[in-house]
C-alpha cells in the first residue's frame, strides 16, 4: 500500500465504518492538537476513548482516561496515534494484543512509521499515516471549507442535515396577522 497518498474512498471508508476510537496521547490541554481532534470527533458522534498514562482515572471532555490500550473495557475499531513516530511500533504491538484487535491504525499528521505500518497491515489492519482524522472528516464533509480549505471534492447534491429538517416550535409570539383578525370577525367586533 502506498502511504504517500490515500484515495478519498479509502479514507471515507474508514471514517464511515469505525465507531469507537482510542486516541493514544490525548492531551487535556485545550491548546493541543490532540484535544482539538478528540473533542471534534466526539461531537461528530464517534465514541472517543483517551489513552494517557499520566492522567489515568481522570476524564477528558467527560470521557474516562485509561493508562494503556489493554485497560479499555470494550472493543475499539481504530487506534489513533498522537505520539512521536518512534512510539508507533510498540503501540501497534499493544493494539495487536487486544481481543478483538482494532481494524484500523491511524497515525496523526506528522507521524509516520513504515515498520509499524507493515506490521499492522500484515495482520489485516488498515493503516493511515501522517493525516488528521479531524481534518479528513472536515474535508470530506466539506465543513472545513468554511475556513477556505480546498476539500478537493465537488458535489451537486444538497447536503443533508440528519434527514428531514426539523424547525423548533419554541419561537417568540409576534403581534397581529390573520389569526387575530379572524378572531375579531368571529366575535363580531370588526374585521379590519
Amino acid at each position: 500500500m502506498n502511504h504517500d497518498s490515500y484515495s478519498d474512498s479509502y479514507i471515507r471508508g474508514i471514517l464511515n465504518t469505525v465507531k469507537t476510537i482510542a486516541m493514544v496521547g490525548a492531551s487535556e490541554k485545550q491548546n493541543r492538537p490532540s484535544y482539538f481532534a478528540f473533542k471534534y470527533l466526539l461531537e461528530r458522534g464517534y465514541r472517543m476513548i483517551p489513552i494517557n498514562p499520566g492522567h489515568a482515572g481522570e476524564t477528558m471532555v467527560g470521557q474516562p482516561i485509561y493508562a494503556r490500550l489493554a485497560d479499555i473495557p470494550e472493543p475499539v475499531d481504530m487506534v489513533d496515534i498522537f505520539r512521536g513516530s518512534q512510539y508507533a511500533l510498540p503501540i501497534v504491538q499493544e493494539a495487536l494484543a487486544l481481543k478483538p484487535p482494532p481494524s484500523v491504525i491511524w497515525m496523526q499528521l506528522g507521524v509516520r512509521n513504515d515498520e509499524a505500518a507493515a506490521l499492522a497491515e500484515a495482520n489485516g489492519m488498515k493503516v493511515v499515516m501522517n493525516r488528521c482524522p479531524k481534518i479528513e472528516y472536515g474535508r470530506l464533509s466539506s465543513e472545513i471549507a468554511w475556513m477556505g480549505v480546498n476539500t478537493r471534492t465537488i458535489s451537486a447534491r444538497k447536503a443533508t442535515i440528519g434527514g428531514v429538517q426539523r424547525m423548533s416550535l419554541n419561537r417568540v409570539t409576534a403581534p397581529g396577522g390573520a389569526t387575530a383578525a379572524s378572531d375579531r370577525v368571529q366575535r363580531g367586533d370588526g374585521g379590519h
Binding site: N150, I154, S155, A156, R157, K158, A159, I161, Q165
Partner: peptide, 15 residues
Amino acid sequence: TLAVHAGAQPDPTTG
C-alpha cells in the same frame, strides 16, 4: 468543471 463547481454546492437549508 472546477471553475463552475469547486467550493459550491446546493444550500443545505434551502436547496
